[in-house]
């Protein structure tokens, strides 16, 4: 790393968003530095999916700004999206197509085809441990394997930032651990930056940067160990942070 601070992989600055009168996000700011694993922790309904929708440009960001490697999503969406890989919470593979067909379709959406792509797909399938399953229909894969395919798919166009929205939801414990380990390995070995949204506390390690999202607002941010300091665990610290809110609302 050089002395000057490198441009963050993801920068969310003062973002608010409403659906009708309901405010889903309220002045949210966060940063994912290059090559780092950052967790976005929040219960279901906290606004994680809305934030992902804004960062992936499903909706325009009306208040605040989203920058990916310095490219403003509103002004340079093409450059910003080229740097971005996403794994959505819902399963988004075509079940009746094969793994390779799914990957080739996604590559086409990024303008990629040909021999180099075939090699790239093989490389990524090996990376996620599914080298043998390329010609199988997605329907025959387990939940954990399908997730691995989605991770491979998100990396096809060589993005430098990967977003994962509740990537382990609905998986058994072993698959969950496998997915978390795979993503952490990618961060370590390839310098990928990751924003990992979750509501599961034990997916977060003590040295991770964590942003806690609650009712559409970031209510705490910092290293997991620091956030948990003074409480029995990160979970206990989270309860302490959020429960006064709920009492006030009641």
């Amino acid at each position: 790393m050089d002395e000057t601070r490198p441009v963050p992989a993801l920068q969310v600055a003062g973002v608010s968003h409403s659906f009708g009168r309901r405010k889903a996000l309220d002045d949210v700011s966060l940063e994912v530095p290059q090559g780092r694993f950052v967790a976005l922790l929040g219960p279901n309904g906290a606004g994680k999916t809305t934030l992902f929708s804004l960062v992936t440009r499903l909706y325009a960001c009306r208040v605040g700004a989203v920058r990916i490697f310095g490219h403003d999503l509103s002004h340079a969406p093409s450059a910003a999206l080229s740097e971005l890989g996403v794994v959505f919470q819902n399963r988004t593979l075509d079940l009746d197509l094969t793994v390779r067909q799914n990957l080739a379709y996604h590559a086409a959406l990024h303008g990629l085809a040909g021999r180099a792509l075939t090699l790239r797909i093989s490389e990524l399938l090996a990376l996620v441990g599914l080298a043998e399953r390329g010609n199988d229909k997605v329907r025959t894969l387990s939940g954990g394997q399908a997730r691995r395919v989605e991770i491979a798919r998100a990396l096809l166009h060589r993005p430098r930032l990967l977003l994962l929205d509740e990537a382990t939801v609905g998986l058994d414990l072993a698959s969950r651990r496998g997915i978390v380990a795979l993503v952490r390995e990618l961060v370590r070995e390839t310098g990928l930056a990751v924003l990992w949204a979750t509501h599961i506390f034990d997916e977060i390690e003590a040295t991770d940067q964590v942003h806690v999202l609650h009712q559409g607002r970031i209510i705490a941010a910092g290293e997991a160990a620091a956030l948990a300091a003074g409480s029995a665990s990160l979970e206990a610290a989270f309860r302490a942070l959020t429960e006064p809110d709920e009492d006030a609302a009641a």
């Binding site: 992936t56 971005l84 959406l109």
Partner: peptide
């Protein structure tokens, strides 16, 4: 609803 529309729209093409 299932999200593949979301995947389509993350394409960098206009």
């Amino acid at each position: 609803e299932v999200g593949s529309m979301r995947v389509l729209l993350t394409s960098p093409f206009p």
